[in-house]
């Protein structure tokens, strides 16, 4: 690990100013991803600015019925919050499906959103990687890629985003509140994350100096009927090969409304808008679910060793919707 200076920020505004002063400074949450990447020499910050206690660590009710999570809230506490569990079970389940009890006790909400890809080439500095070192190449296309993207990838990068929580938040239309050089702003998750294109080094649209202070979730009455389904190589403590966050509103046997997002398939949590469109106003039946899932995956461009994800994603969507429609 390279040497670094450690500073503790009093609040997010101070953290933003401190970042502004040192171009090679990085924010530290629980450190469960960043410390690992520093040890692997993938990340080489000159300074760490600890924000784990500089932002809220609580869930608050928003006027109008939404919720907001403090960026410094530990994953365990967010998942256990009673209001959050009752209103957005999909979010609690997604958090609990991630990592281990020990890691969730350290991991913060903001850190979880901004964790980096688990592509093996990104984590190995002896190999080329366009995300880690722009224009150095991408061995994953020909090499090990069974865990990587089937949707929205580019020639430069086929990395997947590893966060489970972000998939649930994407389905829930969450937004992040940010303090940066230009003041405060709210950014929808769909605009925070990006597809790799020819700038795979950028996971998000954040600028240096931006500090996430909260995640805000709008009210969604029918999200009380929502769930997270995660498929992985072992029963627990593994990243998703494919995951589905879903919420379903059925009236008189018809789909009134639905939210669907996929994990493990793209550079960002993948909102399944094509499937959602294909479901609204249609009978809540398995054949409709199958058609919708197939429509979403039509654009998939799988590689040699990850083609299994296409049917897996389709079946996981169908299964999630079936389970949701069977809920009382």
């Amino acid at each position: 690990m390279n040497p670094f200076r450690y500073e503790r920020a009093r609040d997010a505004a101070e953290a933003s100013v401190l970042l502004g002063k040192t171009p090679a400074a990085m924010l530290l949450g629980g450190g469960t991803n960043l410390v690992d990447l520093m040890r692997l020499r993938v990340a080489k910050p000159e300074a760490l600015i600890d924000v784990s206690r500089a932002t809220s660590d609580r869930v608050e009710l928003l006027p109008g019925g939404g919720l907001r999570l403090g960026a410094g809230m530990r994953n365990t506490d967010a998942a256990a919050d009673k209001t959050l569990r009752a209103r957005y079970p999909v979010l609690s389940q997604a958090l609990l499906s991630g990592a281990s009890g020990q890691i969730r006790n350290l991991a913060t909400v903001a850190g979880n959103l901004l964790q980096r890809t688990r592509c093996v080439y990104f984590q190995d500095v002896s190999k080329p990687c366009n995300k880690r070192e722009p224009a150095s190449g991408c061995p994953a296309r020909e090499g090990y890629h069974r865990n990587l993207s089937i949707l929205g990838a580019s020639d430069a990068c086929i990395a997947t985003h590893p966060s489970d929580m972000a998939v649930a938040l994407m389905a829930l239309d969450a937004r992040v509140r940010i303090i940066g050089a230009g003041g405060e702003r709210l950014v929808p998750l769909a605009e925070l994350y990006r597809l790799p294109g020819d700038e795979p080094q950028r996971d998000t649209t954040l600028q240096h100096g931006d500090v996430i202070t909260h995640v805000e979730i709008p009210p969604l009455e029918f999200a009380k009927r929502s769930r997270y389904r995660k498929v992985r190589d072992r029963a627990s403590f593994a990243f998703a090969l494919v995951s589905v966050a879903g919420a379903l509103d059925i009236r008189d046997g018809m789909v009134r409304d639905v939210r669907l997002a996929l994990g493990g398939v793209a550079h960002m949590p993948w909102r399944a808008r094509i499937a959602e469109e294909a479901l609204r106003g249609r009978p809540a039946r398995e054949d409709t679910f199958r058609e919708a899932a197939a429509a979403e995956l039509r654009a998939a461009q799988p590689l040699r060793d990850n083609a299994f994800k296409v049917p897996l994603a389709q079946r996981s969507i169908v299964r999630t919707l079936l389970e949701l429609s069977a809920e009382p």
Partner: peptide, 19 residues
């Protein structure tokens, strides 16, 4: 490396002492 830190289990390998 699991230890109890302020009553909660954590991976001591990922926790920076200074933090």
């Amino acid at each position: 490396c699991t230890v109890l830190l302020d009553g909660r289990r954590v991976n001591a390998c990922l926790a920076l002492a200074v933090a």
